[in-house]
Design a protein around this nucleic acid. Structure first.
Lengths: 329, 329
DNA sequence: TCTGTATGTGTAATCGGTTACACACAAAAG
DNA sequence: CTTTTGTGTGTAACCGATTACACATACAGA
C-alpha cells in the first residue's frame, strides 16, 4: 500500500502539503494540488484510516449494537441506520450482543478502542455504566432514556391499540403476553395493553414470555394453550412469538380468526407470509434506524438537537388473524 | 484514557518495559511486572488498539461481509462466525453489502483501512478484483472458490435430494425455481435438481427468481401460479421464496401437501412456523459459520490447512408441505 | 581474573498520518 | 520604501503503541 510519503515524493512536495491537499485545509497552490492529485491517482493511494484515527482520535466508523441479530426486527433497524450512514460517508460496524451482558461490554470496549466516532445501541442494557463514560456520542434505539438521545416507537400507544382492536373485534377472554422485562419497549406495550383492557373493562390473563428468541417461542406457545385453553384473543409480545402461537393454534385445532384472534408486534417481513397472515402493530423499524442515524450524525457535527427523544408512531396492520370489526373510524 | 506512558510513570519504568510486560515479550523482572500490573489496574489501562494496529499492521478485528442481513439465513451464519471468533479473542464486524457491488467494495476498503486481520465473505461477488489484492487471509462462506479457502454446504446434493423427495412423494408436474444466477449455491442446487429430475424422467418447468429478497418473493409466487397453475410440486430456491409460495397457494386455494408439495432450501428458523410447516433442505448455517471462522483462524495463525474447501452436508427436513412418501431408506 | 551468557531495562526509531510553527515571497497598504 | 497581509510550503512534534539496539549487571566456566 502506498503511503503519504510515496505520494509526497512522487509529487515532489512534503507530506504536510499532501495532507493539506487531501483534507482541504490551509493553502495549497492550484498547480501543486494537481501534481498531488495525479500522484494519488497513479499510486492508487488511500489514506490509512488507522493512522488518521490515531492522531485525530476519531475514525469514520459508527458502532451499532444489536441485542439479537436473528430477530428480523433488528436487521431491519440496522438497514435504516446503514443507509443513512452510507449517505454521509460513515461506515457501520455491527456488534451482536446476543442479549448477553459480557458480549455487549466487549463490543463497547472494542468500539472504544477502535475510535468509533459514535455509537447506536439497541441493547437492553442501556443503563450500563459503560455507556456513561463514552467519549463519543451515543444514541439509543428502540428504547428511551433520560440521559441520552433516543429513537423509539410508541410502544404504549401500540399496546393500547392492540388491545382496542382486539376488543373491538370481539375477543372477550384475552391473554396478554408480557415480553422480557429487560426490554423497555416490551414493558411499554404491556402497560398500554393493560391500561386499555382495564378501561374497556375486559377480562384478561397475563403470561410472561421471558425471551423473544425463536427457540423459546414455541415453548411459550405451548404454555399458553395449556394454561389458558379457552382464550379467544392473544396480544403477543412480538411477531416471533405470535408466529409460534399461530403454529401451535393450528396444532391444537383452533380456527383463526373465528375462535382465536392474535395480534403481534413489530411487523417483521415474515408476518405477511404466515397463515393466517398476522395482524400486527407495526413499528417503522427502517425509519427508526434512519432517525437514530440522523440524530447521531447531528451530534457528531456538533449541531444542536431540537428534540432528544424521537418517538415514531405505530400502526395497526390488519391481516387475517383478526376478524372484521365494527370499526369506529 | 490512560496511555502506556501514564502506566510507565506510575510504575516508575520506561514504556518499553511496560510494553514487554503487557505482551509477554523479552525479559521483565518479576517485581517490576507486579508494579506494572498494579499501575495498570489502578489506572484501568487498556492498550489503544489503534496505535497497536498502526504499528503491527494488524488489529484483532475480523470482517464479515453478508449479502443481505434481512434474509434470516445470513444472521445464522454470522452467529456461527461470531461465537467461534469470540472464543479466540477476535472481534467481528459485520458489513451488509445488500447485494450491491459498490457497497461491498466500500466495505472491503473499510476493512482494509482498518487493518482487519482476516475477512470472511458470504457475498456473491467473490470474483471481485478487490479480493485478490488483500494483505490478509480470506475465507469464502456459502460459496466455493479455486483460489481461496471456502466453506459451503453441498448445494448440488441438496438439489438432488429435494427433487428426489418430491418425486418419491408423488409430484409429477414439478416446477423448479432457479435462484439468482449470481449465487453460486443457487446454481448448484438448481443443477442438482435438474440432474435428478432428468434421471428420474420426470417432467418439470423452470422459473427464475432473480432475487432472494422478501419484497420480491411475493411477486415470484404470483408469477408461479399464473404461469404454471397446475404444478403439483415446487422446489423453491430458498425458504423465503417458499414461504411466499405457501402464502400464495392458500390464496389461490391449493391444498398442501395434497394438491401441491413444496420444498424449500436453508431451513431458516421461521420455516417451522409456517402453515403448513415447510419441508426443506437444511443447510447447517451456524456450523458453516463456525467452520469458516476456524479456517480463518488457522490461516491467521499460519497453520497449514489440510483442506481448503470444506463442504458440509445438507439434510432433508420433513415437515408438512410434503406428503408421506414410500420411503426408500 | 577474564570471558561469555542470561537477565533486565532504557533510548530512540518507527508505523502513517496531522498540524503548529517558521519561513519565504508577493501584493497591498501606509 | 517600509510594513502589513495573504499565500504557499517545509520541518518537526505528536498521536500511542512496539521493538531493535545499546548497555548494565550477575553469575557461570576457564
Amino acid at each position: 500500500m502506498a503511503t503519504i510519503k510515496d505520494v509526497a515524493k512522487k509529487a515532489g512536495v512534503s507530506v504536510a502539503t499532501v495532507s493539506r491537499a487531501i483534507n482541504d485545509k490551509g493553502y495549497v497552490h492550484e498547480d501543486t494540488r494537481k501534481l498531488i492529485d495525479e500522484a494519488i491517482r497513479e499510486l492508487n493511494y488511500k489514506p490509512n484510516e488507522v493512522a488518521r484515527s490515531l492522531f485525530n482520535k476519531k475514525s469514520r466508523l459508527i458502532g451499532l449494537i444489536l441485542p439479537d441479530i436473528r430477530n428480523p426486527f433488528f436487521p431491519e433497524l440496522a438497514r435504516g441506520v446503514e443507509d443513512e450512514m452510507q449517505a454521509h460517508g460513515f461506515r457501520l460496524i455491527i456488534g451482536n450482543a446476543d442479549e448477553q451482558l459480557d458480549k455487549e461490554i466487549d463490543y463497547i470496549e472494542t468500539f472504544k478502542l477502535n475510535n468509533v466516532i459514535g455509537l447506536i445501541s439497541a441493547s437492553t442494557n442501556a443503563v450500563l455504566s459503560q455507556y456513561k463514560s463514552l467519549s463519543f456520542p451515543l444514541v439509543l434505539l428502540d428504547r428511551t432514556s433520560e440521559e441520552h438521545p433516543s429513537v423509539h416507537a410508541d410502544g404504549y400507544a401500540g399496546g393500547r391499540l392492540a388491545a382496542r382492536e382486539l376488543v373491538n373485534r370481539g375477543s372477550s377472554r384475552i391473554t396478554l403476553l408480557k415480553g422480557p422485562v429487560e426490554f423497555q419497549t416490551a414493558r411499554d406495550r404491556f402497560k398500554g395493553a393493560v391500561d386499555e383492557l382495564y378501561s374497556a373493562n375486559v377480562e384478561f390473563d397475563v403470561m410472561t414470555t421471558a425471551s423473544f428468541a425463536f427457540q423459546e417461542a414455541e415453548y411459550w406457545a405451548k404454555e399458553l394453550f395449556e394454561k389458558y385453553p379457552d382464550t379467544d384473543g392473544v396480544i403477543a409480545s412480538n411477531d416471533v412469538v405470535a408466529a409460534a402461537i399461530i403454529h401451535e393454534a393450528h396444532r391444537v385445532g383452533k380456527k383463526m380468526p373465528e375462535e382465536l384472534q392474535i395480534i403481534g408486534f413489530d411487523d417483521i417481513p415474515f408476518s405477511q407470509f404466515l397463515y393466517p397472515a398476522l395482524s400486527t402493530i407495526r413499528q417503522p423499524a427502517y425509519d427508526m434506524g434512519r432517525e437514530a442515524a440522523k440524530l447521531l450524525i447531528k451530534q457528531i457535527n456538533g449541531e444542536k438537537l431540537e428534540s432528544k427523544r424521537i418517538q415514531l408512531p405505530v400502526q395497526f396492520i390488519e391481516r387475517q388473524t383478526t376478524r372484521k370489526g365494527d370499526h369506529h373510524d
